[in-house]
């Protein structure tokens, strides 16, 4: 269980989160949606303690992580697998070393079957075993994303945070990744939080969807509740219309 209570976060004058409350229950997949730059990635980083909120409290398994000492926080961070928006692969290491990085630090007893782990995790994200020997610089954008995903799940964390798992993938591969996320939840009972702009994927993978707007929670509910939502902000977002209460600061082309 992860709980955010009244979280505020600003970067200089840019007040990104302004009192966000959110609770993620055991075993569910919650998807966070919201416009670009509304603080979805920031929210994920706050959940793992990579960013500290200016105000408010964050709980992981009923333990407050805000203001925790580094050592104690490191123990909490072990519970998480994190797929970063940009992949964040270690570019001095090969794909195989990247995938095994968490296993090496957190589950060293499993290193005996390291080849097996690499092959299995790459297979789960639709990558061939040959990729294992390559360096991240030799991969395409979508491949990097999938290696990042393989790395996030390799050490079998209790929570997985996916920051835009299907961005940059073709439609078929996106659906493969959606199936993988669903399978991870159903088979391994892992609690997941995903950030996505892809509504098709959001409906498919989520138990609940939460929308962030102007630094707060605008709505939260099951996919069908969100689809039927009367809230104009939510309605505009999920139908992807440029007309509505959310106004993008753009000039029209004349």
């Amino acid at each position: 269980m992860i709980r955010l209570e009244g979280v505020h976060k600003a970067f200089g004058p840019n007040r990104v989160l302004r009192g966000l409350d959110l609770e993620i229950q055991e075993g569910e997949t919650l998807t966070i949606i919201g416009g670009s730059g509304t603080g979805k990635s920031v929210t994920l980083k706050i959940m793992v303690g990579l960013l500290t909120p200016d105000q408010g409290r964050v709980f992981v398994d009923n333990e407050e992580i805000t203001g925790m000492e580094e050592d104690a926080l490191a123990l909490v961070q072990r519970k998480f697998g994190f797929l970063f928006q940009g992949g964040a692969l270690f570019d001095s290491l090969t794909v195989a070393e990247n995938v095994l990085f968490g296993v090496r630090n957190l589950k060293p007893e499993e290193l005996g079957r390291s080849d097996e782990i690499v092959e299995r995790c790459l297979g789960l994200v639709g990558l061939k075993p040959e990729v294992a020997a390559l360096k991240p610089a030799e991969l395409s954008g979508g491949m990097k994303k999938r290696v990042g995903l393989a790395r996030a799940i390799a050490h079998q964390p209790e929570y997985i945070l996916y920051d835009e798992p299907t961005t940059g993938l073709d439609p078929i591969m996106s659906d493969v990744i959606n199936d993988l996320i669903v399978n991870i939840r159903e088979k391994l009972k892992i609690t997941s939080i995903a950030v996505t702009h892809d509504m098709k994927s959001a409906y498919k993978i989520s138990n609940r969807i939460a929308m962030i707007y102007e630094g707060r929670l605008a709505a939260v509910g099951t996919p069908s509740e969100i689809q039927r939502s009367e809230n104009p902000v939510v309605h505009q977002f999920i139908t992807g219309s440029s007309q509505g209460p959310i106004q993008m600061p753009v000039r029209s082309y004349t």
Binding site: L50, Q77, F90, R151, H155
Partner: peptide
């Protein structure tokens, strides 16, 4: 510095090292 701006330093924390 490159690792920092590409979130690789953050990734280290979530993969069990400092």
């Amino acid at each position: 510095g490159t690792m920092k701006v590409t979130e690789q330093v953050d990734a280290l924390y979530t993969l069990g090292t400092n």
